[in-house]
């Protein structure tokens, strides 16, 4: 058995070392059926929401609100409005669940299955391995947000006409009315910001995945932290401390629908999310680096 020299044009030679490992991780991640559970559930949930709006009088309060503000309701009972309404519950409940599921799997599932021991019999550093896995997870989070946006528009278009965007988020004090083009830009910007939520929750579950725990435990721990943070954030007495709560900074995407986007607040939260994510990764790495990998 000779060691053939790779030809310069061959696929492996075109990629850098990190690129090859990233491609491996993506093969592993997207080769699993459970990776697609999130996509399928988005599809079902968004269809269901669109159908409820189409077949019931669920849009009546919204129409009254628009008319009381002097707008023509029909112009805003549109693809963009319904897709944005779909976005709120999915981003609040389904997205955290599925990114935490995948984040919790990334290391712990490989440790449980024994493939981690096979990998660590190779001359790859643990730092590099974790970095590649985190990036693959982040790409998954991005793809989930992209799917959420595309599915939302596609399914809303099945039942509603194109038109302006109307958004009402009382908790954030957002009441936005936009024409079609501006509405689409806001919708896309919101999904781009939603990536920060997806990646942060994934990063949190990923950190727990680096501990010596089962994949389900890593997912549950990640979601528990999110729920606890969410509960604390909503206790009125803690209002002045909410900058300390992770979930407070995960609502960035909602500000993309404000008449005037509070960019200072967005920038502040983004920088804090970078800090949170760096901390999650550093803790996960420290724990993983110190671990003994055994059967």
């Amino acid at each position: 058995m000779n060691r053939p020299t790779p030809s310069p044009g061959s696929a492996p030679a075109r990629l850098t070392g990190f690129g090859r490992l990233l491609r491996n991780e993506l093969w592993k991640l997207f080769g699993k059926k459970r990776t697609y559970i999130g996509f399928v559930m988005f599809l079902l949930a968004q269809n269901l929401i669109a159908l409820v709006f189409k077949l019931t009088r669920a849009s009546a309060p919204m129409q009254r609100l628009l008319e009381s503000a002097g707008h023509t309701a029909e112009a805003y009972l549109s693809v963009l409005t319904i897709a944005t309404i779909m976005l709120v519950p999915v981003a609040a409940f389904l997205l955290p669940l599925y990114v935490a599921l995948v984040g919790g799997d990334l290391v712990a599932k490989e440790a449980e299955d024994g493939t981690l021991r096979m990998i660590l019999a190779r001359p790859v550093s643990r730092v590099r391995l974790l970095a590649v896995k985190w990036v693959a997870g982040a790409l998954f989070g991005m793809s989930l947000c992209l799917a959420l946006g595309v599915f939302g528009l596609a399914f809303a278009r099945l039942y509603f006409p194109w038109g302006g965007l109307f958004v009402w988020m009382p908790e954030q004090g957002i009441f936005g009315v936009f024409d079609g083009a501006a509405g689409l830009a806001r919708y896309l910007a919101a999904h781009a910001m939603l990536v920060t939520e997806a990646v942060s929750i994934l990063g949190l579950a990923f950190m727990f995945s680096c501990f010596n725990v089962k994949p389900a435990a890593a997912t549950i721990l990640g979601l528990s932290v999110i729920f606890v943070s969410f509960i604390l954030e909503h206790i009125p007495y803690f209002a002045e401390y909410r900058d300390w709560f992770l979930t407070w900074h995960l609502h960035l995407w909602q500000y993309m629908f404000a008449e005037r986007v509070p960019w200072w607040r967005v920038g502040q939260s983004l920088s804090l999310l970078v800090g949170f994510n760096a901390t999650f990764f550093a803790v996960g790495l420290a724990v993983f680096h110190a671990r003994d990998i055994k059967t």
Binding site: M1, P4, S10, L21, N24, I119, R122, P123
Partner: peptide, 19 residues
């Protein structure tokens, strides 16, 4: 084989077939 081998070095398809 592709996945495990890449953790060591670039492994051309010819080598995978050979092994």
């Amino acid at each position: 084989l592709e996945i495990f081998s890449q953790y060591t070095a670039v492994t051309p398809a010819a080598r995978l077939r050979e092994v």
